[in-house]
């Protein structure tokens, strides 16, 4: 018989080491008990990656976490993910600090599992159930386009997310398709050659836009890039601009990316 894990009824000094757990933790605790949070990850205030950057100005966020820092902060719970440094994870496993490891959300089912588990850990189970239901509802109302579009995520290094990536899941939930899916044999990220890129049929290029960059700058960059400038989609200016913080998210903000992507495609297609 499986034994259900039991958690302390209430943690009041939670340290989150990753943006994934930062964003979900903030959403689950924000309205009534954000004082439970001791510190968030170093990326949480970076508007290029964090979808809650503007909301967490008063929360502690060290530039990076060392073992000493974690110990000295005296957290009663540490939230980490499988992509944290192995040496740090090994230390946490061996230490007496309560520690929970989360798996990177490559898919929406991973995301629901992470939200549900974190809700249970921090005694916000009902809030987690409500949050998941809300997110699922938002995805369910995404309309089917007349024709699913073939999308590719812009990368200046031609390093593309494959079918197990959050980008593929976002494209799929928006009823479109990441064209790189079929080129990535194991589903991971893949680096393509310039000439291969030229032969891939692409309807739209999804560009993650940073807060300090303008669309005009990004178009100029892509149009001048040796590997991209010859693509018909570039010549026809088939760009979809989505905030980088949503596009790269592994948290509930993936759903914002789905909505934004769906809307951007809808607005660009002839009616």
């Amino acid at each position: 018989m499986a034994i259900e894990p039991s958690y302390a009824s209430s943690y009041n000094r939670i340290a989150s080491l990753t943006l994934l757990t930062d964003e979900v933790l903030w959403e689950l605790t924000n309205k009534k008990s954000s004082q439970k949070i001791l510190s968030l990850s170093s990326l949480v205030r970076n508007r290029s990656y964090s979808c809650i950057a503007d909301k967490v100005a008063n929360v502690k966020s060290p530039p990076s976490y060392s073992v000493e820092q974690i110990v000295s902060m005296k957290p009663d719970l540490v939230l980490a993910a499988n992509f944290n440094r192995p040496s740090l994870l090994k230390f946490l496993k061996q230490s007496s600090i309560p520690f929970e490891l989360f798996k990177s959300s490559g898919s929406f089912s991973d995301l629901w599992r992470n939200i549900s588990r974190l809700g249970e850990i921090i005694d916000e189970k009902k809030q987690a159930i409500k949050m998941i239901a809300g997110l699922k509802r938002r995805i369910s109302v995404i309309k089917n386009p007349k024709q699913p579009q073939k999308l590719v995520s812009y990368s200046s290094e031609l390093f593309f997310p494959g079918k197990n990536s959050s980008f593929s899941q976002i494209a799929k939930a928006a009823k479109h398709r990441n064209v790189i899916d079929e080129y990535s044999k194991d589903g991971s990220w893949v680096r393509l050659s310039s000439e291969s890129l030229l032969t891939i049929p692409i309807d739209f290029i999804v560009v993650g836009i940073r807060p300090n960059a303008t669309k005009k700058q990004m178009i100029a960059e892509i149009s001048g890039h040796e590997s991209w400038k010859n693509l018909p989609a570039v010549r026809d200016k088939k760009f979809l601009f989505i905030s980088n913080a949503y596009l790269l998210s592994l948290s509930h903000c993936m759903v914002d990316a789905v909505e934004l992507l769906s809307r951007e495609v809808y607005e660009q297609l002839p009616r």
Binding site: V190, R191, L192, S193, E195, S196
Partner: peptide
Amino acid sequence: ARTLWSPQE
């Protein structure tokens, strides 16, 4: 470099 793992590089 271009052909061994084509279309990867």
